[in-house]
Amino acid sequence: MSAIQPPAETVWWKQPLDKVEGTWIAIALVWSLFMFFMMPFWHVYGKQNLSSEAYKTTPQAYMAKTQAMVDQYTIRTETDAKLPVVRPPPGSDVYLLGRLWQWWPLLELEKGQTYRLHISSMDWQHGFSLQPVNINTQILPGYEMVLTITPDTDGEQTIICNEFCGIGHHNMVGKIYVTEGET
């Protein structure tokens, strides 16, 4: 009987498989397992993996840490709003915060160096989206996420927000400048 009627054979579970089904199931299963193992494989052999390092925090505590870094390492300001551009030493802990509606402060990093980039939100959820290199993560208030990054292209990268965060969402832009090492 057809699929909208009860099965003709009452003991349908004993019906043998057609060869076409058996073959396809075998192929699809192998592919599924391959895709599954690809993920742990990339953790071992690939270079792009998010760490699960994160801490509970509060907007006040996180703001204090970011402010301290800004006070210590600001090298210039930009635009009429005098946005600080911070150049922290290679290998250090770098703090970036998202708030309505900016990414603060602007950062200047050295190509080929590794940094521990901390990100958190002061208010609502935000989406850290670094363009054009195209790295995207979710940023939550109350959580401080740590990404270990190694910029390997120089030039200007823009941080945009790709989690809706209210009426100014589409104006929320920040920058990461990547410079050649100064030798």
Binding site: D80, Q102, Q131, P132, H170, M172, V173
Partner: peptide, 23 residues
């Protein structure tokens, strides 16, 4: 794939303090 955001009113960032241009 080129990084354009979802849920976003203005991919040209016209009113934002810092500029960004998609290809």
């Amino acid at each position: 794939t080129l990084g354009v955001e979802r849920r976003h009113w203005d991919m040209a960032f016209t009113n934002s303090t810092l500029a960004f241009e998609y290809p």
